[in-house]
């Protein structure tokens, strides 16, 4: 099943990572990612990978949750690998460039680590909990006159509608792809692609306009367009520890010079 709605369902097992507050996971993910993406030395990649490994293990996630790399991406990765192997970057062993391989591996490693951080968040946290966490995290912005209640309500309603809309998109997608090739565009791939996108988008938009109509009537039937405040969530000691820890790691990544240093381009 690669239906897109499965993106929004956490994996129903229990673990210390599952029990963490969604805020801690969101913040820790952002902080560690920033620390990594601005400091691309092997030492920092190693630390980020280690943290990722620890988080993955303590979330008790089996390896089978890892998504499969799409074929197109695999081809691109392979092509990049070939280019790097035969590059002129020192050190070289015969025709093989270890320096080129190392540069390539660093770039790919950063990409994978970033994707997996988000993966851990989505595998251990339901969409609803993330919605609440985001709404709590933006609340302090109200001191800058940001209409946080209004944004929060739109987020809440969007989170509510998301699985329904995702299912609709899947139905439309199935319906479009199961049709014989658009009759009049055979042999004209660009027009065919256009027709495909237009048909899909139109069906999705019309479907969700009906939903929007129902939703506005339901809101009026409740006498309010403002979502209730998200439930209070006292951060536990472990949550605070995770946030502070991630912050420390992020700052340290900028302060401590990485080894080996980046080779200038």
């Amino acid at each position: 099943m690669n239906r897109s709605s499965s993106f929004f369902r956490a994996i129903p097992i229990d673990s210390p990572v599952h029990r963490l507050a969604a805020e801690s996971k969101v913040l820790a993910g952002i902080l560690v990612s920033i620390g990594l993406v601005f400091n691309t030395e092997w030492s920092h990649i190693g630390v980020a990978a280690l943290l990722l490994f620890v988080a993955f293990r303590s979330a008790r996630l089996p390896l089978s949750v890892l998504p499969r790399v799409p074929l197109l991406v695999r081809f691109a990765l392979f092509g990049g690998l070939m280019g790097s192997i035969f590059s002129d970057e020192a050190p070289k062993v015969g025709a093989i460039s270890l320096g080129g391989l190392s540069d390539y591996a660093r770039l790919i490693a950063i990409g994978f680590i970033m994707i997996l951080w988000v993966g851990i968040l989505s595998w251990t946290t339901g969409l609803t909990a993330v919605g609440f966490a985001i709404r709590r995290l933006i609340r302090p912005l109200r001191f800058f006159k940001v209409p946080v209640d209004e944004i929060g309500s739109v987020i809440a309603l969007a989170v509510r509608s998301l699985p329904l809309v995702a299912d609709e998109i899947d139905v439309v997608n199935e319906s479009v792809t199961s049709r014989p090739a658009p009759a009049d565009h055979a042999g004209k791939p660009i027009r065919e692609a256009f027709a495909f996108i237009r048909d899909t988008a139109t069906a999705v938009v019309i479907g969700s306009h009906r939903r929007a109509r129902d939703l506005s009537m339901a809101m009026v039937s409740r006498g309010s367009t403002t979502a209730p405040l998200p439930p209070r969530n006292e951060l536990r000691r472990i949550d605070k520890l995770v946030i502070v820890g991630a912050f420390v790691v992020c700052v340290a990544a900028f302060v401590i010079p990485g080894v080996p240093p980046n080779t200038p381009a």
Partner: peptide, 14 residues
């Protein structure tokens, strides 16, 4: 509000 929410949901789902 409803149009905004459904549009947001569509963006994320897409």
């Amino acid at each position: 509000m409803a149009d905004a929410a459904l549009t947001a949901a569509m963006i994320v789902a897409l």
